[in-house]
Simulated assay, not measured.
Amino acid sequence: MRVMAAAPLTAKIVGLATVFVTSGVVHLVRPQVFEPIVPRSLPARRELVYASGVAEIVCATGLLVPATRSAAGWGSATLLVGVLPANVQMSVSAYRRMRRRPEDRRRQLTFAGTLVRLPLQWPLIRVALSATGR
């Protein structure tokens, strides 16, 4: 079996780890913020929020350690793809709230922010994959 050398620790990988730690801690401390974006078809919303928060912290830690960076890169990319439905749900929910009060500037900005966030998943996934060393 051939062992691959760890991908170098880049500023982008450190940035992704920082995003994951920050988000993971918020998931654990304020899970109610994330519960509404868990797709309705999924059970146990709070538990899923906690699990995703722990997964983010584990991925962040793994990205920073050379011996686990490759596996953490794969796990991070998988996690980012896995939470994409929640990000889509966030946009759908923000759109519905905005439609109820279309003159509300705050709701307009919130909806716009959720739309801007969606395509940002792809560069984050690319950074995660760069950590795999492949």
Results as ranks from 00 to 15, higher is better:
Ser130Gly: 15
Val127Pro: 01
Ile37Ala: 00
Trp74Arg: 05
Gly62Arg: 02
Gly75Thr: 13
Pro39Ser: 09
Ala55Thr: 06
Thr10Met: 07
Val21Met: 13
Arg101Met: 05
Val127Trp: 04
Glu103Pro: 09
Thr22Asp: 04
Pro119Arg: 11
Ala77Glu: 00
Thr68Ala: 08
Pro39Lys: 11
Ser52Ile: 01
Gly24Phe: 01
Thr110Arg: 12
Gly75Tyr: 08
Pro36Leu: 11
Val38Asn: 01
Trp122Cys: 01
Leu48Ile: 15
Thr110Tyr: 08
Ser91Met: 09
Gly113Phe: 12
Ala60Tyr: 05
Ser76Arg: 11
Ala7Ile: 02
Ser23Arg: 00
Arg40Asp: 15
Asp104Trp: 02
Leu64Phe: 10
Arg2Met: 12
Pro119His: 12
Leu124His: 02
Thr18Ser: 01
Arg46Lys: 15
Gly24Met: 04
Arg69Lys: 05
Met98Lys: 15
Val14Tyr: 10
Trp74Leu: 02
Gly24Leu: 05
Ala112Pro: 00
Arg45Trp: 13
Pro66Ala: 08
Ala5Met: 08
Thr22Trp: 06
Gly75Phe: 05
Ile57Met: 14
Ala112Arg: 03
Arg126His: 12
Pro43Val: 14
Leu16Trp: 02
Ala112Leu: 08
Pro85Phe: 00
Gly24Thr: 07
Ala86Val: 08
Leu16Val: 06
Thr22Leu: 12
Ser41Met: 14
Val38Glu: 04
Ala6Ile: 08
Val54Arg: 11
Ala55Glu: 03
Arg107Asn: 07
Arg107Thr: 00
Thr10Glu: 09
Ala5Gln: 09
Leu84Ser: 07
Arg106Leu: 09
Val127Ile: 14
Phe111Gly: 05
Arg126Ala: 14
Val58Pro: 00
